[in-house]
Design a protein around this nucleic acid. Structure first.
Lengths: 208, 208
DNA sequence: TAGATTGTTAATCGATTAACAATC
DNA sequence: TAGATTGTTAATCGATTAACAATC
């Protein structure tokens, strides 16, 4: 599974995955690139190209087996690993993520919460206890956390990232609006809300 | 301001904007593409290319005026419009966005909340009253809402989008994991958390 | 068979990187 | 002046689109 897949393709795979889950629930057995494309506003050529990147398992003249393709994409994305998340920073956003219902169908589960605010340490969110950040390393190891989610203010984010890396997480999902520096061995994805909102503002402006 | 700017460039502008705000706070007057690039992990060539898209206002041998560039990017992105947001769906995520502190420095303000759950209608979040969805059109007009933020479950998202469009919003920011159909005249930006998290999963998998 | 649809190659398009003249 | 740095052109790289043979 070491084949290089372009980031653009990787970013479309979860859309295919989600749609395949939906059509599987509709008891559809086979789907064409055309139908999949219609449901996602992506050209069928693009979809076939993306899928061809990691093998050929469509049937000419027929289409793709929905279940088989779903499992295949799940494995390409590594979702079958059932990654375990720890959220650092249980403010409004961290709390919302601790309750986020769309993680489960993708195989992610939140197993630990951390906050530096002593007044909320010890309480629970969605049945998960909030721990002090001082306990981060111990609990990350104990709970076998794979992914650290950073939802602290920007000024604290780098320190949290450092702690997560030291504790041995395998990846970081950062919501703080700041550039983080982590070892190349630890994949980092930034979820920057200001980017999408600014793009929206731009498109609204040029149109008026 | 009708010049076409590539989406890739548009998506980097908010990063430049944020960094310029920071360095302005550090009382830096002038910044080079090199320094800006170092702070963002973007090559200086890329930055100069992006900025050159909408005019020339750097000084050769010197760099860019921090304040001037900040204002320029703010105007390109249309942030000076001080867009007014309405959030539809005050669950965990909608509630978190109603409290999100990073909107204000970019000129966005949340002016209305809506939810279909009668048991929370009438209560307040961050000092903003939650209204019934049945009041959406009236209140969107009354409060001069520009942007509709969709944080309802996927199955309800299209209906909410239709209502927002009918009420006359100028743009939609969608957090529901589903493809929405809106008129081409209404810019739509999807904030899909599963994309980033899946990409993280992928990178963690290929590395192990 | 005829119609449908994939997988793949070739063509096009667009974005990034490199290079460097202009100039502060 | 010499050193620094922009703005722009050219070269490269990568992604999307088009076309179509293969084949169910």
């Amino acid at each position: 599974m070491k084949k290089i897949i372009s980031q653009a393709t990787i970013d479309r795979l979860p859309l295919y995955f989600r749609t395949l889950r939906l059509v599987e629930d509709e008891d559809m057995q086979i789907i064409s690139s055309d139908e999949l494309g219609r449901r996602l506003d992506i050209t069928p050529e693009q979809i076939r190209k993306d899928l061809a990147t990691f093998g050929q398992f469509g049937r000419k003249g027929i289409g793709y087996d929905v279940h088989e393709l779903k499992i295949k994409i799940e494995n390409i994305l590594g979702l079958q690993n059932n990654w375990r998340l720890a959220i650092v920073g249980v403010g409004h956003l961290g709390g919302a993520l601790a309750n986020y219902v769309n993680f489960a169908p993708m195989g992610f589960s939140v197993v630990a919460l951390f906050d530096s605010n002593a007044s909320i340490v010890g309480s629970e969110v969605n049945g998960i206890k909030i721990n002090a950040v001082s306990q981060l390393k111990r609990i990350v190891v104990q709970k076998a956390v794979d992914i650290g989610v950073i939802t602290v203010p920007a000024v604290e984010a780098q320190a949290v990232a450092d702690k997560l890396v030291a504790a041995g997480v395998k990846g970081i999902w950062n919501f703080a609006p700041i550039k983080l520096t982590v070892p190349a061995s630890v994949p980092l994805v930034n979820e920057d809300l200001s980017v999408g909102l600014s793009a929206l503002s731009y498109h609204m402006s040029v149109r008026s």
